[in-house]
Design a binder for these strands. Structure first.
Lengths: 148, 148
DNA sequence: CAGTATCCGGAGAGATACTG
DNA sequence: CAGTATCTCTCCGGATACTG
């Protein structure tokens, strides 16, 4: 994963010369190889890896400690959980707050940006269900989830 | 990646007992480990891998042959291109049509389902831009792209 | 409690060469 | 033209053991 392309009018252009850059010009660069700054790339990178969406899903329900998450996801090893949380912190999805005292306690919760992932996950959920144009359930209360 | 969880009311539940299944019940199972049938999983799998979104982006502009794609994405090897196309075909995003005759010619184009990915990619694009609530550009003509 | 340190095995990406 | 066949190399994901 690595692009930075996008955009471009989607109105079915019937076969430009091949790699034509002939569509209507739009601000996004038309890249011929993956670039890490592409917004789509960025999102894909934030959600990348096994367990990632499950961790996010758990956090959508509220703040959690490392132990809470480990308990909720028994099959997930400490190492991978730590990896995922670190990844989510660096991508700005999660905030990590270490409580003073002993034993050590760390609270993890979604940032505003993390909560904004809901729209993305709903779009993914809708597509994954297989409908061609079916949108998310009206009322928007349902497909909250993440990776389900 | 492998879940099947999702859903669940997102209304900020302030710390259920931990792995509580206590939210309001909704049809989607609350999984504690990745399951391949989860809609979000399905979508993630369809877009997984380097170059995938770039190939889809190329096809959003219209039908392409293997060679067209290879020319448009010079840094992409034949092997990986073939891998990606096969992946996109099995996930129902792309249709492969082999032209009779010689030299061999194969036309690739998006299915209705593949075109439906546009919404997903737009949501990803919007999130990747960093805005918390900023939606896709009005008029919807712009962030067509894929991975950009 | 909340991780980090190692080690290992498998999947995926890329390069190169060959075929229907 | 449109792939397939190999091989290599690197990046995870997972298991186990140890620490602030």
């Amino acid at each position: 994963m690595t692009n930075q392309t996008v955009s471009a009018g989607l109105r079915t252009a019937p076969r430009p010369p091949a790699s034509a850059t002939a569509w209507s010009g739009d601000p996004h660069g038309e890249v011929d190889h993956p670039v890490p700054t592409c917004p789509v790339e960025v999102t894909l990178r934030a959600l990348r890896g096994r367990w990632t969406t499950l961790v996010v899903r758990e956090l959508f329900a509220g703040e959690r400690t490392f132990g809470d998450l480990a308990t909720a996801l028994p099959a997930l090893s400490d190492k991978v959980l730590a990896d995922r949380l670190a990844q989510l912190v660096t991508t700005g999805v999660v905030v990590r707050v270490r409580e003073p005292g002993w034993p050590t306690r760390v609270r993890y919760s979604l940032t505003a940006r993390g909560r904004a992932l809901r729209e993305v996950l709903e779009a993914m959920w809708a597509w994954g269900l297989g409908a061609t144009g079916a949108a998310a359930p009206p009322g928007g209360a349902d497909p909250v989830a993440l990776r389900g």
